[in-house]
């Protein structure tokens, strides 16, 4: 707050900011920095602790490799591991794409026809609640192509959140707006395009965030189930293979890659959601 009193308070330093406000601003700056620095610091301490434990107890690398060795392995096996990462990524993204198309398509169908919803939603629920590890062996019996099998498994896991959220979103259009569209004699198609789909967008994006992570989990789990029998070469296959060979550092290296991939997918879907909603949706609003 400005001091406007003039000469009489001239002996005081004329400060244009309120000390209370300044204190709040400082606290805000500290909090902003802490948001990044704290997790990094904790992570660094954890890795250092890991390193100390391994060194202090002289744990052999085939039991628990130190963080240095894991990094070294990541670098040395980079050709092998990144080729596997690419395959896992391909399956993940293909499954996610099909999940989005299938999930949104089914949701639109459900929103248009209650009969379709009554008929098909139990199947969707059954697919969702049955653990993928128990379905996957059957899939690999009936489906010859390993790639298609993996894709199918990842899709089954990923599509339900997209379907469930988008269905909810399509039904959540403001009822007054629905009335308005009815009064203006909007066609079913116009209502879908101009009202229901935009209303469903925030819900869909929430589903996409979940589905992104699940597609990766589905791809990895399916590869475990498919096992090393075929000519598999995704990251999960590398982990299994390294396990059989007691190459523990490589297991860790592959694990780190999977974790980083999951984080990257989450970051990407969050960014997409933020960019699509930042102009209008409550979830993306910055509050004073």
């Amino acid at each position: 707050m400005a001091v406007t009193d003039g000469p009489r308070t001239g002996h005081l330093p004329i400060d244009t900011t309120d000390p209370e406000e300044e204190r709040l601003a400082r606290r805000q700056r500290i909090e902003d920095a802490a948001r990044w620095l704290l997790p990094i610091a904790v992570m660094a301490v954890a890795i250092w602790g890991w390193h100390r434990i391994v060194v202090a107890n002289e744990i052999p690398h085939y039991v628990l490799p130190g963080p240095g060795l894991v990094l070294e392995t990541l670098w040395e096996d980079r050709g092998l591991l990144f080729a596997s990462l690419m395959i896992t990524l391909q399956i993940t993204f293909a499954a996610l794409a099909v999940a989005v198309i299938g999930g949104v398509g089914l949701a639109v169908l459900f929103a248009q026809s209650r009969w379709a919803e009554m008929s098909f939603s139990p199947f969707a629920v059954i697919l969702q609640v049955t653990p993928i590890v128990s379905i996957a062996p059957l899939i690999f019996i009936y489906i010859e192509s390993r790639l298609v099998g993996l894709l199918l498994c990842a899709w089954i896991v990923a599509f339900f959140p997209v379907l469930a959220n988008t269905t909810l979103g399509l039904k959540s259009a403001d009822h007054n707006l629905r009335d308005l569209f009815a009064i203006y004699r909007a066609t079913r198609w116009q209502r879908l395009i101009h009202l229901q789909l935009p209303s469903a967008l925030p819900y869909f994006l929430g589903g996409l965030k979940i589905a992104g992570g699940l597609a990766l989990i589905g791809a990895v789990v399916a590869e475990y189930v498919a096992g090393t029998g075929g000519i598999g070469s995704g990251l999960a296959f590398r982990i299994l293979e390294a396990g059989y060979r007691l190459n523990i550092p490589r297991m860790f290296a592959a694990l780190i890659l999977i974790a980083l991939t999951g984080v990257a997918i989450y970051g990407a879907t969050s960014l997409i959601a933020h960019l699509s909603l930042r102009r209008w949706h409550e979830s993306a609003l910055k509050r004073e």
Partner: peptide, 10 residues
């Protein structure tokens, strides 16, 4: 209507 009933995305 009693509420403004606007499309928030537009």
């Amino acid at each position: 209507f009693q509420e403004p009933t606007l499309m928030p995305w537009a």
